[in-house]
Design a protein around this nucleic acid. Sequence first.
DNA 1: TTAGATCCATACCCAAACAGTATCAATAAG
DNA 2: CTTATTGATACTGTTTGGGTATGGATCTAA
Lengths: 294, 294
Amino acid sequence: MDLTRLRYFQAVAEELHFGRAAERLHMAQPPLSRQIRALEQELEVDLFERTTRTVHLTEAGRLLYPPVRQLLLDAAALERRVADFRSGEGGILRLGFVDSSSYETMPRFLRAHRTRWPAIEYELTSMSSDEQLDALEREEIDLGIGRTLGNGRGIHSTLLHIERLVVAVSADHPFATRASIHISESATESFIGFDRRTSPSLHAQLRGLFASCDVDYDPIIEATEYTTILGLVASGQGIAVVPAGVQSFAPANLRYIELDDVAATSELLLLTRDNERSPLVKRAIELADEVFPG
Amino acid sequence: MDLTRLRYFQAVAEELHFGRAAERLHMAQPPLSRQIRALEQELEVDLFERTTRTVHLTEAGRLLYPPVRQLLLDAAALERRVADFRSGEGGILRLGFVDSSSYETMPRFLRAHRTRWPAIEYELTSMSSDEQLDALEREEIDLGIGRTLGNGRGIHSTLLHIERLVVAVSADHPFATRASIHISESATESFIGFDRRTSPSLHAQLRGLFASCDVDYDPIIEATEYTTILGLVASGQGIAVVPAGVQSFAPANLRYIELDDVAATSELLLLTRDNERSPLVKRAIELADEVFPG
DNA sequence: TTAGATCCATACCCAAACAGTATCAATAAG
DNA sequence: CTTATTGATACTGTTTGGGTATGGATCTAA
């Protein structure tokens, strides 16, 4: 079965006249008649009932016309898709993002991007910052939203947002009534943290921050999603240090406490390959500069 | 754009190896390579990035793969559709039915038919019995559910159901408290009836029935749908003689009264062309005999 | 009734498309 | 440095598809 023949079928089915259909298809009538015959023999059903004066659809023809029409429309859509891609209006962006960005920054970026380029499609994968750097190198993603600079690995980064770190505690924890605490006060706490194997650089960053206040940051439970971490915190199994962005995830018995320490921040970065040549990615970086100034 | 080339594209995209893809397509590798090149030139985009050792999809290739796969699945579905038709399991039945059958008999017939032949599609058109006879002759429908025999017009009929005629009156009408009446009692009533231009034979039938009791049946309002007629009756603008089947349509202030006259019946018939050769229609008649015995 | 017009089908021809074989060029592995 | 692997190229024979000319059937009009 061949799209050309289906196009011929559609034309004849709509005109119910071989001459006019041939004209519409910019061809002569005899080859059109022959192709329709060939299609009928291929399918082993008659599609038209013809006398020398009239043409009309058989039951099989009526049965086939609607889906054939749809198939041809879909094929045309496919061609438009290619045209969109060539014009730079379409394409596919593979975006990796850290789970903690999925509450604020990632949706905000995506919304702005979709508004500007509605024909572009996305392949979204949640992954840690370290996984993003690997995935960028292996060309498995085009864009990352993460927290780790990829210096010396051919990774370009654009600052999206400097976030405060906050402490998540359950509602019945002594800290819950405080407006803020110092890191040094948390020396005796049990921590719940992001999985250190998945995200070693995040772990190292927090460990360094806490060490500067003489606190040993060594989570007793680790998870790979913030909903898991915060659920464990809410059930009173420990406290967690998290980026401020996740605060929009607010179950009933969970409280977020500020950290007084000036250094308690984390940067969300837009990560791309240094040698990126895709205009889609370049324009995405420019858009990020507009949407997240400073 | 050609389905064959899209099939080649799909094979290479899935195998990521020209040799294996060619094998899968039962062809030699060189023509496959050439066809892929031709497709790329036709679309003016590169679909694969190839070295002499590796093949992988470009962005355009990734963008195209899912819809191409879908298009090929749709094309395969089209072929199955034809196969279903040839095997007699599929097809399209154009069914005309009188509005009054749409409350009981038509749905019952359709349910039985769909259960037996799930791959068959339907084109349902509400039309009067007389319109059905015309439509059958003009081959615009294959099957009719109506009340008029098409004797001498090459129409075959199968009895589905003998229905009592009943009288619909509004709740505050004198007849409303009666269990039954005689036609002769309705001599002074205003009638609301089915449009006589649309359905002359139904009008003639009722007129004849009432004349045998010396009542002049001459509706003052006529409509082409029973919901309209019964709405007007419910609002007290007259009474109507209707087949018992419509009683399942029961608004609050509407009452149905039996007719004592023995002749007050109407037959629902399955109408087909006498010279019908379609096995679909023949089997539909057989099914009707099973589902509506007697 | 007949001449003309209309319309789909058939016959024949040529050009373009396509698949096969043989072979080349580039790269990776030992 | 040799060998195996893999995609690209060159060349050839066959198939496919479209064009022109024409035939045969049917409807219309004089």
